[in-house]
Simulated assay, not measured.
Amino acid sequence: MTKLLFDLLRIESVSGNEEPMTEFLLNHIDKRKAAWKVQPEIFYGDKFHDCLLLKFGDPRGAVFAHIDTVGFTTRYENQLLPIGGPEIENGTRLVGEDSLGPISCKVILHDDFAFHDFPRAIDRGTLLSFEQSIILDQEFIQAAYLDNRLGIYNCLKLCEDLENGWIVFSTYEEHGGGSVPFLLRYIQETAPIEFALISDVTWTTEGVKHHEGVAISLRDKFIPRKRFLEKVLKLAEESGITYQLEVEGMGGSDGREIQFSPYAIDWCFIGPPEDNVHTPNEKVSLKDLQSMVDLYRYLMKRL
């Protein structure tokens, strides 16, 4: 687990510039696919922008994981504009690169605006992300961008023995979405699906806690179809894998775009809870991550 996950965490992939992650995934797949149970068809290139699709066997369902992160865009006069919803604190370290070279700077907050302290002007439109610092112990992993590196990691583990299904790496999820509609159209025209699981990260709350298993979301701002949820929950109970149930009234994921699509596709969000969402110090239980991997494997063989 450690090397693959650490490699994923070190890649900068702010919404709008997911290409570095796509290139990493293509390289990883090329090296590892010979050992997988089924050899997938791989779809990528300009018509998919920086999205990546893997088709295994004869799919009935798909797993979606977004490959972008929150971050910042440099504006004028050292100002920073948020991408997605990063939590901003004075002194937070950011990294990136422009035409003059690598950038490492701090966030400075002033009158509800965010600025950087880099000693020279940064090219307008440069994308900056949180500086990475990974802490791993026997119980937790803490780092920037566990959302959604853990969802990607889960998908890559699933690829090892997946026989039938799509694995979909989407873009722009943190900043309004937009890639899932054209991906769904391609999927439905190529090898149509009936359901989708959203491989993403949720948050800890008074009802969703560390070490109590992966969270199966019964709803967030959007509501999956109850009949499908009941099927998922029945299988989860049969599996013996530790899980917990989430019920929220806000938040969203690629599931939103599936629900709003013109296709009759059921969906469910399943992911581990984390503390310190959208900060450089996101924290997830290793036990919950493992239950995520185990449950996805179980469900994709039986749904």
Results as ranks from 00 to 15, higher is better:
Ser13Gln: 14
Gly96Gln: 01
Gln79Ala: 14
Asn164Leu: 05
Ile241Ser: 09
Ala62Ile: 02
Asp220Glu: 15
Val180Gly: 07
Pro119Asn: 14
Ile187Pro: 08
Leu218Met: 10
Gly165Ile: 05
Leu128Ala: 00
Phe56Leu: 03
Phe24Ala: 04
Lys283Asn: 12
Gly16Phe: 07
Ile241Asp: 06
Val214Tyr: 08
Asn78Ile: 00
Lys287Asn: 09
Ala236Asp: 11
Lys55Tyr: 00
Ser13Phe: 09
Phe260Ile: 04
Asp111Lys: 13
Leu53Pro: 05
Val168Gln: 01
Phe48Asn: 13
Phe64Leu: 14
Ile11Ala: 03
Leu197Tyr: 15
Glu163Pro: 02
Lys106Thr: 13
Lys106Pro: 02
Thr171Arg: 14
Pro280Tyr: 08
Thr242Arg: 13
Arg227Pro: 00
His175Trp: 13
Glu237Gly: 05
Ala236Gln: 06
Ser129Asn: 10
Phe195Thr: 03
Leu218Tyr: 03
Thr69Lys: 07
Ile167Met: 07
Phe43Trp: 11
Phe182His: 13
Ala264Lys: 13
Phe228Lys: 05
Leu127Met: 09
Ser170Gln: 04
Met292Phe: 01
Lys47Arg: 12
Thr92Ala: 06
Leu109Phe: 01
Asp7Pro: 10
Tyr153Glu: 09
Val63Pro: 06
Leu81Asn: 12
Asp123Gln: 15
Ile152Thr: 12
Leu54Cys: 03
Thr242Ile: 07
Tyr172Glu: 10
Glu163Gly: 06
Gln259Phe: 10
Thr190Lys: 14
Asp7Ile: 09
